[in-house]
């Protein structure tokens, strides 16, 4: 299957970050990136060359296509940790546990809090490899169940290796225990143990 990444309409450094995020999920034997400006093309080429890819590119009209290949990898997506650390912080990996205690972020206006929380969940992936566990309690558990817009976002996090848990008693309280779509049902003991094991716990 061809791996293609559409980075048109993005200015630097966004295309490089997109490519980096993609490769972080697992090394790819080949990748094609679509771009619409020369600076982005050169930056993506530099990044991929730095990751030991053989890179070529072509221009058609206002669009650029960058082709990257790594002969040392199998054709199918391999679950090899591919990326060299881009900064010092990546060296000493911390474990961050995020505890979501409700459906709103902050107090004041619930409409705003609703929007902020959704945005927060969407942005969480920027924590990168340090995000270790994401646990939901109280009304927060409803993010993990059928019908929640957050499910695909959480699924993506789960796929990238984040352990997602939802409090079983809470799911039962809201009568949605059988509707959970992403993550695992957990209990208070596991939550407390997670807090002890994590390097830092962020409560929202």
């Amino acid at each position: 299957m061809a791996n293609e990444l559409d980075c048109r309409g993005m200015n630097c450094p966004a295309p490089v970050l997109q490519v980096r995020n993609t490769l972080e999920k697992g090394a790819l034997a080949s990748l094609t990136v679509l771009l619409d400006n020369e600076a982005a093309r050169q930056n993506v080429c530099r990044f991929l060359e730095n990751q030991n890819y053989e890179v070529s590119s072509e221009k058609s009209g206002d669009e650029y296509r960058v082709f990257a290949n790594r002969g040392d990898l199998p054709k199918e997506t391999a679950a090899v940790p591919s990326i060299s650390p881009i900064n010092k912080r990546g060296d000493a990996k911390r474990k961050i546990m995020v505890l979501v205690t409700g459906i709103y972020m902050g107090h004041g206006d619930d409409g705003l809090g609703d929007m902020l929380m959704f945005n927060f969940l969407k942005t969480l992936k920027e924590m990168g490899g340090e995000l270790w566990r994401l646990s939901f309690v109280n009304s927060g558990v409803t993010f993990t169940v059928e019908g929640s817009e957050a499910v695909p976002i959480l699924q993506e996090l789960a796929d990238s290796g984040v352990k997602i848990t939802a409090c079983g008693a809470c799911l039962a309280y809201f009568h949605v225990l059988d509707k959970i779509q992403v993550g695992e049902v957990t209990n208070m003991l596991e939550i407390v143990n997670g807090m002890r094991e994590a390097d830092s716990v962020i409560t929202v």
Partner: peptide, 13 residues
């Protein structure tokens, strides 16, 4: 970071 492609468009201009 230059080798990572974190280069502002202005540099290419």
């Amino acid at each position: 970071w230059a080798s990572m492609g974190l280069i502002p468009a202005g540099a290419y201009n």
